[in-house]
């Protein structure tokens, strides 16, 4: 399988503080990789480096053959091809759901308003929210907003999707409706890199699990191995803490 996302020896510093230390991993086309680890271990930073929302000082990241750190790379174009879903949804509150879904298609991809709206509604239907098209983000629940955010990312026909703790800001009863959408997406063959502590989702859906601690990738293995016999002491501790819940 060819690597859709290739991360080679990436290191990053905030001033003196090293957030990422020689991270190396790959995500193959159609693969679902779950990234977990304690808070502050650099998970968000790592996935933000993938679509250049954060810059890194050493190493390289190649997305679908394009080097992210290369000064000549058209970053807006690269970003428009990689979908991203955030912990706090980040829908645009002043735009209706329909416009949230259409605006980037129109302004970035140059699609016509009609085409963009139609595509947005199709995706909205897919995440089960067609009836809410005319509403504004502030009128939806957190779970609904996050499903819209996923639909919005999909409207750009991404080659891969990045998720940064998509369910951590949700009330427990809303977590599953979002995970269901993500599971469906994975089954359709979307390439996904998900930062999440939902170990049930990882067990069901992930191909591989990456465990990070203090800016380093400590484990990077198949999910059976990760849940069955993690090699590092830190991963064992992390798992025992998180699985107690």
């Amino acid at each position: 399988m060819s690597a859709m996302i290739r991360i080679n020896n990436v290191s990053k510093w905030y001033g003196e503080f090293q957030v990422l230390t020689e991270c190396t991993t790959q995500v193959a086309k159609g693969e679902v990789v779950v990234v977990c680890g304690p808070s502050g271990s650099g998970k968000s930073t790592l996935i933000k480096c993938v679509n250049a929302l954060e810059a890194f000082q050493k190493g390289e990241i190649i997305v679908d053959g394009t080097s992210v750190g290369d000064a000549k790379t058209d970053l807006p174009k690269l970003r428009s091809r990689v979908g991203m879903v955030f912990q706090h949804f980040e829908l645009f509150p002043h735009l209706s759901i329909t416009d949230n879904l259409a605006i980037a298609q129109v302004k970035v991809l140059g699609r016509s308003q009609d085409e963009a709206t139609e595509k947005g509604l199709k995706l909205l239907n897919r995440v089960g929210l067609k009836a809410h098209a005319h509403k504004y983000p502030g009128q939806l629940s957190g779970g609904q907003q996050q499903r819209v955010a996923i639909a919005r990312a999909l409207s750009m026909d991404p080659i891969a999707m990045l998720f940064d703790e998509p369910t951590s800001a949700l009330d427990p009863e809303m977590i599953n409706e979002v995970l269901d959408v993500m599971t469906e997406l994975a089954q359709e063959g979307m390439t996904m890199m998900c930062v999440t502590h939902e170990m049930g989702f990882a067990r069901r859906v992930a191909n591989r699990v990456i465990f990070m601690d203090r800016g380093q990738i400590i484990e990077d293995c198949g999910k059976e191995e990760f849940f069955g016999s993690p090699r590092s002491e830190r991963a064992v501790q992390f798992l025992s803490k998180i699985l107690q819940h």
Partner: peptide, 15 residues
């Protein structure tokens, strides 16, 4: 405004 707003817009390819 929350910082995530410009992050989200950047992530979709806005200039």
């Amino acid at each position: 405004l929350p910082k995530g707003q410009s992050h989200a817009a950047l992530a979709m390819g806005f200039s």
